[in-house]
């Protein structure tokens, strides 16, 4: 509009922002074009979806299936519990070692490098490697989830420790307390609530992931789920999915309560 070019510009155009948006739009169009989407495929997809849902409902609630699902679910829960317990126990010293305000540089950088490696692989890939190393079964799943637990909890715990008030620590140090006494009275009180929060969050996350490691042989509900899927028993798949969703909802509710107890 010519009027607006004559008048003073109330809003100077933000070219960087526009550039980002335009670039994103062009990329999106290009990337979609690589997916080979055409009318026939969409139509086939819709028909497949209809058949899928038709087979899914009603969910299969036969006792023998439920028995199988129960065993798988229990194993998944146990995998999550043990992986969280061991992973969090190991994350405590690892996180302290990675905190730059407590540990000398060479310790914290070593710890940070280890954490970066632990974090970089998806639990499923780690599970594949552990299945090869220790064989099929829950142990491989537990070890894989311990790795991802350590990667996540140590990193965030180190960040929490780095945010603590140095003054409170200094005051405890000034009483002549030893290093461990300073940790117990000066550092832990400041970080424990957050640590418990991280732990219960990670438990939820491990519960979700423990339903998946079974697909590559790491134990838990994943194996029966994958079998049912390959046999086109989609009604059993739906039952398992509903149980997983219900379990996660309960777990999130319980974690919120636990977090409040340790506020």
């Amino acid at each position: 509009m010519s009027a607006s070019t004559l008048a003073r510009a109330a809003f100077p155009p933000d070219w960087t922002k526009r550039f980002v948006w335009i670039g994103l739009a062009i990329y999106t169009v290009y990337a979609i074009s690589t997916l080979d989407i055409d009318g026939a495929r969409i139509a086939r997809g819709m028909a497949n979806a209809a058949r899928l849902f038709d087979r899914m409902f009603p969910p299969n609630l036969q006792p023998d299936k439920l028995e199988l699902i129960k065993d798988g679910m229990i194993e998944s829960i146990q995998i999550a519990i043990l992986a969280t317990f061991v992973g969090v126990l190991l994350s405590l010293p690892m996180g302290l070692a990675a905190a730059r305000n407590l540990a000398p540089p060479w310790v914290s950088w070593t710890a940070r490098a280890i954490i970066a490696v632990l974090r970089s692989f998806h639990p499923v890939i780690v599970a594949i490697l552990f299945v090869k190393a220790v064989g099929f079964g829950a142990l491989a799943g537990i070890l894989a989830l311990i790795v991802s637990t350590m990667g996540f909890v140590s990193k965030l715990f180190a960040e929490v420790v780095e945010e603590i008030s140095a003054k409170q620590v200094e005051a405890v140090r000034a009483t002549g307390a030893s290093f461990f006494a300073v940790l117990i009275f000066g550092v832990f009180p400041q970080v424990m609530a957050r640590f418990v929060g991280l732990t219960v969050y990670q438990f939820d996350s491990n519960l979700r992931n423990s339903t998946m490691v079974g697909i590559v042989g790491g134990g838990g509900i994943g194996a029966p789920l994958f079998t049912a899927y390959q046999r086109f028993d989609y009604d059993v798949v739906l039952t398992i999915l509903l149980i997983i969703i219900g379990l996660i909802m309960i777990a999130e509710f319980v974690s919120a309560r636990i977090r409040r107890i340790f506020q």
Binding site: T34, L35, G45, L52, V124, R208, L225, V237, I244, M249
Partner: peptide, 25 residues
Amino acid sequence: FVSSRSVNSLIWALLFVAIFGPGAL
């Protein structure tokens, strides 16, 4: 939101492979 987060991406992928067939879609 809860349903979306509770089910792992790998499991969602199973369902969408059943719908669209194998592939990036």
